[in-house]
């Protein structure tokens, strides 16, 4: 039988590095990042597009990596949490803001929130409409589930990250 291993060659950029790989067509982007590239910061909380743990940035927009195939990222640019840190492992301003506000507990949802908040900050920096009030930030983050924190501390951190414009570089 066809055991699903039809493959295709794709070229994409992940965290600034261009790669050409031959990959099973049915492989999700999340599995490709986590298992094939070892970029395990991107987490899988539901694998059906609800929890946001797998959020990455594709061509500048936040997207779920669990509900798209790696081949769909052909020719695109993907950024994961691993792509945010400075050359010597310095925390990104968004990460600093979240640390300063004790935003997280177990950390499983965290990379998804970091990317979602990073996306919000970038939108703001680009002058596009972005959330201002806490209620708006809550709405904006409604696609990310955290079971530990009750969100308040995450909103605190996101508010600070947004207020600071959170640094210059992305």
């Amino acid at each position: 039988m066809n055991n699903g291993n039809t493959t295709r060659e794709i070229t994409l950029t992940v965290n600034g590095r261009k790669r050409t790989v031959t990959i099973e067509v049915r492989r999700t982007l999340a599995d490709f990042l986590r298992e094939d590239l070892g970029l395990t910061a991107t987490h899988l909380g539901c694998e059906h597009g609800v929890c946001g743990a797998c959020t990455v940035i594709v061509d500048g927009a936040t997207e779920r990596s669990c509900t798209q195939l790696a081949v769909q990222a052909d020719g695109r640019e993907v950024t994961t949490v691993e792509g945010l840190n400075g050359p010597n492992g310095e925390l990104h301003p968004v990460q600093e803001a979240l640390r300063d506000h004790h935003s997280f507990q177990c950390g499983f949802c965290t990379p998804g929130f970091v990317m979602a908040i990073h996306g919000m900050v970038e939108e703001k920096k680009a002058g596009r409409p972005s959330p201002c009030s806490r209620a708006e930030i809550r709405e904006e983050l409604s696609g990310n589930i955290c079971r530990c924190t009750g969100y308040q501390s995450i909103i605190d951190g996101a508010e600070a990250a947004l207020a600071a414009g959170a640094g210059k570089e992305s």
């Binding site: 949490v81 691993e82 840190n85 640390r99 004790h102 965290t110």
Partner: peptide, 10 residues
Amino acid sequence: RKEDRTILTG
């Protein structure tokens, strides 16, 4: 938190 660098950087 000591834990935060680890979890925030994934």
